[in-house]
Lab assay of single mutants.
Amino acid sequence: SAVVMEEGSPGEVPVLVEPPGLEDVEAALGMDRRTDAYSRSSSVSSQEEKSLHAEELVGRGIPIERVVSSEGGRPSVDLSFQPSQPLSKSSSSPELQTLQDILGDPGDKADVGRLSPEVKARSQSGTLDGESAAWSASGEDSRGQPEGPLPSSSPRSPSGLRPRGYTISDSAPSRRGKRVERDALKSRATASNAEKVPGINPSFVFLQLYHSPFFGDESNKPILLPNESQSFERSVQLLDQIPSYDTHKIAVLYVGEGQSNSELAILSNEHGSYRYTEFLTGLGRLIELKDCQPDKVYLGGLDVCGEDGQFTYCWHDDIMQAVFHIATLMPTKDVDKHRCDKKRHLGNDFVSIVYNDSGEDFKLGTIKGQFNFVHVIVTPLDYECNLVSLQCRKDMEGLVDTSVAKIVSDRNLPFVARQMALHANMASQVHHSRSNPTDIYPSKWIARLRHIKRLRQRICEEAAYSNPSLPLVHPPSHSKAPAQTPAEPTPGYEVGQRKRLISSVEDFTEFV
């Protein structure tokens, strides 16, 4: 048969007729292969192709491409040299491709048809291009793949890379869960390890502090508590009631339409708007009261037996805890006409967050109470924005700035309102402590230090009264110190430094 060459192609190359033996071998191979691939376009007849790359030819070592076609129900084999250009295909004639002069020997084609199974398996396991790669995943090629499931790999992101949580363990979102698992493993320790309690022994800490320079003076030496005195035992138990972190309780009120001037209507609300609910979820963490331990979680007086509701929101960081007394989460009882059960919590909070959804101005004093010092007013606006402002009593104007209003988005509203309420509550605590000038409020841990110092002074006084020969370590507060001759004046800087060093040991009130 003659071949018409394309323009620009090399000279004529004689194409030899395939021997009958080659056709029989390739026909047997075509019957084993699956003929249901995917359909081509209507211009080209339905056909199945599979590209198999052999590394070497037997005796020649030339890479070839073998295409199996099922045109007219008769499979045909096409061998081509890759750099050459194939002729145009037609549905009426068999596929013809040019070969190099080196394939002119018909014996070479017979060798190609009689490829060993080793070469076929190696060509099938190679990388296939384009559409033949999808075909190689079918059941027909499963014989050339190794048996057994593939090893499982770690989760992959859409980009093909490992997620960040699997790369950096410290930033993994499941870090707290692993800590819980470690605690569970520790709890399952053997009885021999049960006595080993991690941490620092208080006796060891005391020993280090006792021999430090801070205890060089007799006034700073630790003293032993009497065991037989019940009054001192009660004082030590009272110390446990003062937490070592700051605590805040903040009221949250929802004002519906037409309720801006009605205290009873505001306290009777059992739910609010959708934006109000989203605002609550951002204030803190939802907790169930019956599962809380009052000595570990500050509840601000809420009952854990269901008297004040089942849930509330709280927030904490390293040095403070805040609980929100939310009116809509507290039960509304029919027998309580004046809502006294709610007001006994909300009316005693220094700061209230008022979500004013009424469309009218909310005035300070609508919720009557002796300790309502500051109101954080949240007014929802259009386009997911809110107006946040402050209202306070006249005696609080020096501590709280009420002249600045803020426009905040719904997303950042819980954070801004919480921070403003916490700052206002700190100012309210300082303002409330002014009624007792001898006990200015600095912080909870300073209050613990003052309680310890008062307890020490009482013990020293009782020891001096029981044994008059012992001198008083600290003179009583009601006694007057003996007159001392004025010492020589020293520079102001040295006096300030000495006073600062003494105050650092005794108390921190002056620095606050």
Rank of each mutant, 00 (worst) to 15 (best):
R275F: 00
A424C: 13
D401A: 04
G306M: 06
T485K: 09
I250D: 00
E360I: 04
L238S: 10
R454M: 13
F279Y: 00
Y274A: 11
G347W: 15
L387C: 04
M320C: 15
V297Q: 15
R434G: 09
C460V: 09
I407F: 05
V416Y: 05
T312I: 11
L224Y: 13
C392N: 02
L253W: 08
A464F: 09
C340T: 13
G282M: 03
S466L: 11
D246R: 05
H248D: 02
V374K: 01
E233C: 11
M330Q: 06
Q370G: 15
Y245C: 07
Q321R: 13
L399G: 03
S435P: 04
F311G: 06
E384P: 02
C314Q: 12
G282K: 04
T402H: 08
S479D: 14
P491T: 10
E228A: 06
K296E: 13
P331G: 05
D361S: 08
Q370K: 15
Q241G: 07
E384T: 04
V376P: 00
S229T: 10
V297I: 13
A322Q: 05
Q321L: 15
D303H: 07
N372G: 07
A463P: 12
F362W: 13
L390R: 02
S273E: 01
V376M: 01
N436K: 08
D308G: 10
Y245L: 14
I266A: 03
S409M: 03
S428E: 01
V323P: 02
N261V: 04
F373N: 10
P476C: 13
K394Y: 11
I242S: 07
L302S: 15
G300L: 05
G282W: 00
K221S: 15
V304G: 13
E397K: 07
F371G: 15
P414E: 00
G272Y: 02
Q293P: 13
Q293G: 13
H325A: 04
R434C: 11
E462F: 06
H431W: 10
R434K: 11
L280W: 02
T509Y: 05
S435D: 14
S262H: 07
A424S: 06
G398N: 06
R234E: 15
I407W: 06
G309M: 15
I502T: 14
P222S: 11
G272H: 02
Q237E: 12
K499V: 09
P222K: 09
S235M: 15
H432M: 09
N372A: 07
P222L: 05
P486R: 10
H338L: 13
F350S: 03
P468D: 13
G492N: 11
K394V: 14
E218N: 08
V416H: 03
E488Q: 07
Q237T: 11
R456V: 13
S433V: 10
D401G: 09
L381S: 03
F371H: 12
K406V: 15
I287Q: 10
G492A: 12
A251G: 15
